[in-house]
């Protein structure tokens, strides 16, 4: 299963434990070094898909600071899918890096 970058970082945000929607937005931003900003519409669309595919489970709603929250947790299948995707990405990165090194020319001053 291949993930798009926002989905990859949204799921990766849940590796350390369950988080609510805004927690996922913040953690995904941190993990990607600020490269990924999940908008609310995108976040809930991809969470809905991940729940349907059994990668994430949603907890019961609760109120915190006057706002309704719900924690999302990565399932074993979700963890497995993330591991497979990270392996695929690192393999792809390694292949490209190797080719770049092999074909690099010395810089002439």
């Amino acid at each position: 299963m291949e993930f798009r970058t926002p989905s990859y970082f949204a799921l990766a945000a849940l590796i350390d434990g369950p988080l609510h929607g805004y927690g996922i937005v913040r953690r995904a931003g941190e993990l990607s070094g600020g490269a990924v900003h999940l908008s609310t519409g995108t976040l809930y669309a991809l969470l809905e898909r991940a729940i349907k595919e059994g990668l994430v489970v949603a907890g019961e709603p609760y109120v915190q600071g006057g706002r309704e929250r719900r924690d999302y947790r990565l399932t074993a299948d979700g963890r497995g899918a993330l591991e497979a995707e990270s392996m695929r990405l690192s393999e792809a990165a390694r292949t490209v890096a190797t080719r770049l090194r092999a074909t690099s020319k010395p810089v002439v001053a």
């Binding site: 609510h20 929607g21 805004y22 937005v25 908008s39 609310t40 519409g41 976040l43 809930y44 709603p61 706002r67 309704e68 929250r69 719900r70």
Partner: peptide
């Protein structure tokens, strides 16, 4: 099902 939760997330964001 998720309207209030989305509202909270968007207000925080």
């Amino acid at each position: 099902s998720t309207g209030s939760e989305m509202l909270g997330t968007l207000l925080d964001s």
